[in-house]
Simulated assay, not measured.
Amino acid sequence: MNDLSAVSSSAQLAMKADAPLFIVLNAGSGKHDAGDTQQTLAGIFDAAGRRHEFLLLDSATDIESRAKQAVRLACEQGGIVVAAGGDGTINGVAQHVLGHPCAFGVLPQGTFNYFGRVHGISQETEVAAKALLRAIPTPVQVGLVNEKVFLVNASLGLYTKLLEDRETAKAQLGRSRLVAMGAGLMTLMRERRQLRLTLEARGQSRSIRTPSVFVGNNRLQFDRLGLPEGEALEHGQLAAIVVKPTRALAMLGLALRGALGRLGDADNLIRFPMHRLTVHPHRHRMIKVATDGEVNHLRAPLVFRVAPEPLLLMVPAPEDRVEVK
């Protein structure tokens, strides 16, 4: 039995079938009103006789305090911390669950939800909530960059700029896929900055100019982009994608290849799996890094690695798993 199997087996023995749920609910995620979502979830858990408590988020600044409160309650009462929201909310709650002896549940309500989908969790709130009642605690890999958690990906450079410009456009023009796509295209056409970095991985060091570095921790996202390095994520590694210095039209070509699931055919990418990657930015002490879509300012050097301990995720039972489409 390997380490993850041992963790899973011991967790299943320790987890009570009626473990209380402490639900951190983001009022700003998803298509439905938070009040309606809370009412729906409460009805499901009440009908099942499952004790639960909601900790509502009014803004992003609430995540730390609400997540810490949920973790404290779960640890004291043998409960489960549940994040209900998009990738940013799920990441923010997971940051505080990691390293504590309590399980983590997910009720995805954002747009992409790669983390939930790769583990067979339904994107429909009612379906996911009912599956959570029968879910099995299972250890899953977590990525870290300077101790900041990422469940899906972490990046610096152009991808981070894309996220910032997308959020600015949504704030001005409304939240829609069309607005997000338009903002992304404008960023690709206008952005010219290149990062000067030294990368250290697998015992080798390399200096490079690049518009973007992307480190992934989600097999589904890599498969959708057509990148075979996603297989490494099943073997305790992360996968890095570094873009070679590239003109605007070539960047648009990369974006198109990604949309078509053919990014693996591109010859202007450096791709490699690794357990640890150290990035030394030239001239920068602080640098913007996006983790699961949220932008942070981190101090250099940046160290990307697999967390030494897994996150104990409540994964749907086999009969409740939703196949990825």
Rank of each mutant, 00 (worst) to 15 (best):
L4H: 10
V7S: 01
A11R: 12
A11H: 07
A14I: 03
M15P: 00
A19T: 11
A19Q: 12
V24C: 06
L25H: 02
L25P: 03
G30Y: 03
K31N: 11
D33A: 10
G35F: 07
Q38H: 02
L41C: 13
A42W: 01
G43D: 08
R50E: 08
D58A: 13
D58W: 00
D58S: 14
R66G: 02
K68C: 13
A70R: 08
A74Y: 05
C75H: 02
E76H: 08
Q77F: 00
G78M: 10
G79P: 07
I80M: 01
A84T: 05
G85Q: 06
D87G: 09
I90M: 09
V93W: 06
V93S: 04
H96R: 08
L98H: 06
P101H: 08
P101N: 11
V106C: 05
P108F: 03
N113S: 08
G116Y: 05
I121E: 04
E126D: 13
E126Q: 12
V127W: 02
L132W: 05
P137H: 08
P139M: 10
P139G: 07
V142T: 13
L144H: 14
N146A: 08
E147T: 12
E147S: 13
V152Q: 13
N153S: 15
A154H: 08
G157A: 05
T160L: 03
T160V: 14
K161F: 00
K161Y: 01
K161E: 15
L162I: 15
E164I: 13
R166S: 04
E167A: 09
K170E: 11
K170Y: 00
K170D: 02
L173C: 07
R175D: 11
S176C: 06
M181C: 02
L185H: 01
M186T: 12
T187H: 05
E191N: 14
R193K: 15
R193V: 06
R193G: 12
Q194T: 11
R196P: 00
L197R: 10
G203D: 09
Q204I: 00
F214D: 02
G216T: 14
G216K: 02
R224H: 06
G226D: 09
E229M: 13
G236C: 10
A239M: 04
V243D: 00
K244L: 15
K244R: 15
P245T: 14
A250Q: 15
L252Q: 06
L252E: 09
A255Q: 05
D265F: 05
A266R: 06
N268K: 06
F272E: 03
P273E: 09
R276I: 00
T278P: 01
T278D: 05
V279N: 10
V279F: 07
H282Q: 15
A290F: 00
A290R: 06
P301Y: 07
F304V: 09
F304E: 07
V306K: 07
A307I: 12
P308K: 03
L312W: 08
E319Q: 15
E319A: 14
